[in-house]
Every structure is written in structure tokens, then in C-alpha cells.
Simulated scan of single mutants.
Amino acid sequence: MFAVLTGAGLSAAAGLNAYIPFLIVGLLARFTDVINLPGGWQWIESWWAIGLAALLLISELVLDKIPAVDSINDMMGSIVRPATGGLVAAATQSASALDHSSFLQDHEWIAFVGGLVVAGVVHAGKASARPAVNLGTAGFGAPIVSTAEDVSSLGLSLIAVFVPLLVIVALIVLGWALWKWSRRMRSFARRRRDAEHPA
């Protein structure tokens, strides 16, 4: 059960920022015994994978804070974020240090598909809310929202690994926050549009 919660939390974090949970899994697997990746997944803790993920994270941190560029970045993330969510879910759910379920270890594809779906849903919420944020704030909200997403991804990743039972609460809060923020920004954008073009 803990491995399922860890995978779900890491997948949701990947829906916000693909590279933060990937790096956390890779670094913890390389330098600690918290995560022991099985043979097929040990490439995640290799120096080349960690280095590439770090470079991609730096570019994501910059590009996602620029209005309009962030929407293009989200379009590219439509493939990367769900795929990364599936990867980290499958890798961590099959890691014996997190759970001793032979079923999960033998059926990694279930974790991959589940992670793909969770990350895809979170990414879709993020990507649909961002244009409303840009329109509603004339672009000034992009860096603030992006930073909040990065912090949320980091926090959710750490919770998923170290306190998996809190993943349920974190996912509920994340879902509520995305829904609330999206509604608020759409309403703000609608009012602004009506003020600029009165009937």
C-alpha cells in the first residue's frame, strides 16, 4: 500500500514539474537506502540521467515563468509529464524497500499506467489553468503560479517518499487548489474581458 501511495504522489508531482520527482528518486536511490531501485530501473540513478534531469529542470524553472512561453512549455509537457509520472510510479512501486508486494514488483506496467493517468490529470489541470492566469493577470501571475507549482511538486515528492500516508490528503488539497485557482482566474479573465469590451 505504501508503494502505491508513493507512486501516486510522485506521479502527481510529475504532473506539475516532471523533473523534480525524477531527480528526487534518482538522488535518493544513488546516495541513500531510502529507495533501492530494481535492476531495470537503476538507470534513473545514473549520473547521465541525473545530469540530464538537472539540466531539464533548470530550463523548466526558467521557461515556465515566462508568459506565453509557459503555455508552449505546457504543450510539450503534455507528453513528458505523464510519461515521467508513469516512470517514477513504476520504478518506486517495484522498489522492494518501499513495499514487499511481489504483485507490484511483477506487474510494473500497472504502476506505469496508473502514474501516467495521475500525472496526466494533474498536468491537464495545470495546463488549462495557466492561460487563464496569464490572461487574468496580464502575464504577471505566471512566475508566481509557476513557483507555487514547483514548491508543490517538491513538497509532494518528499511527502510521497517519506510520509506516504499523507499523499491522500496532499492530493485532495492539490485537486481543490487547482480547481479553485482555475475558477478564480477564469472569472477574473471574464470580468476583465467584459470591462474591455462592454456590450
Score class of each variant (00 low, 15 high):
N36A: 14
A13K: 07
T137V: 12
S11I: 09
A13S: 08
T147I: 15
V88W: 05
S152Y: 03
F140I: 15
G136R: 06
M76D: 06
G77H: 14
S146N: 14
V117C: 02
T32V: 10
V122N: 07
R30C: 03
S153K: 02
A142N: 15
S94W: 03
L27Q: 09
L37R: 00
L52Q: 03
A119W: 03
L28V: 14
A53Q: 07
V34Y: 00
F22E: 02
A91N: 03
P38T: 08
G86A: 10
G39F: 09
W43V: 05
L98E: 07
T137Q: 02
G115Y: 02
G136T: 14
A119T: 09
T84G: 07
G15H: 04
P21W: 06
G141M: 05
T147W: 03
G120W: 00
A148Y: 01
D99T: 12
G51A: 13
T32R: 07
L52I: 14
V117D: 07
L27D: 02
I35E: 05
K65C: 08
V121I: 11
A91S: 05
L52E: 04
L16G: 04
P82I: 14
A97K: 02
S102V: 12
A119G: 08
L27A: 14
I50F: 00
V69I: 15
N134E: 10
G141H: 04
P21S: 08
D74A: 09
S152N: 02
